[in-house]
Design a protein around this nucleic acid. Structure first.
Length: 199
DNA sequence: CCTACGATCTGCT
DNA sequence: GCAGATCGTAGGG
């Protein structure tokens, strides 16, 4: 049986550790029966990370980033795409991990219908905006609990060997000065469902 | 009130 | 490689 990741998993002070640790874990939307394995993540920090929404401080938009570890931060990007993050820092401190790519496991036909592309295609769940659409994650799930809420992150015992984890620069944050070069993006080497093959 | 813009994706060149 | 889609947020007047 799969084990739901405990709150302690998310309470590490460094989002980079959680970003690495989430590779190979399973995200499950209990309501619609869809599940997928996480193969690509990015870590985001607080006031010291210019690429982070929390860089300028606490606002109504990024409020959930300061919330309880093990909850979701879902936001709208470019007016079109929903982005799914896992809050990782202690309450009151900003820190999150963006889920950027997942490998479909269950409910694949539902995912294909939501996306409007064949289930066999790479586009089904590669990319942060694509995977939220595939899994049916909307703004309603902002701030929801990932330990006992409608979205869960599980461990089925699979381990990604260290040599199969690659790291590189985060995507789409070139405006962020030195922070743009932080190697805070992680993905599973040669996995088909990684949004971009290299960093 | 008004404006600029973004942790993206797609389709076309 | 590039433009367009599309809208909530934040900051300025």
């Amino acid at each position: 049986m799969n084990r739901i990741l405990p709150r302690s998993f998310y309470e590490k002070k460094n989002p980079v550790l959680v970003a690495r640790g989430l590779l190979g874990k399973i995200i499950r939307v209990t309501r619609n029966g869809c599940a997928a394995r996480i193969v690509e993540t990015e870590a985001y920090g607080g006031s010291l990370d210019r690429a982070s929404h929390a860089w300028k401080g606490r606002t109504a938009r990024n409020e959930s980033m300061f919330g309880r570890p093990g909850t979701a931060y879902v936001y709208l990007c470019y007016g079109i795409h929903r982005m799914m993050n896992v809050v990782t820092a202690p309450e009151g401190v900003a820190g999150a991990v963006l889920i950027r790519g997942v490998e479909p496991l269950e409910g694949v036909e539902k995912m294909a219908r939501r996306r409007g592309v064949p289930a066999s295609e790479f586009r089904l769940t590669a990319g942060p905006g694509a995977l939220t659409q595939a899994l049916g994650i909307s703004m309603r799930w902002d701030r929801c609990d990932l330990v006992c809420g409608p979205i869960r992150i599980e461990d089925d015992g699979m381990r990604i060997p260290k040599v199969k984890i690659e790291e590189g620069r985060r995507v789409g944050v070139s405006y962020a000065g030195p922070a743009a070069r932080f190697p805070w993006r992680f993905w599973v080497r040669e996995n088909r469902w990684v949004s971009r093959a290299r960093g």
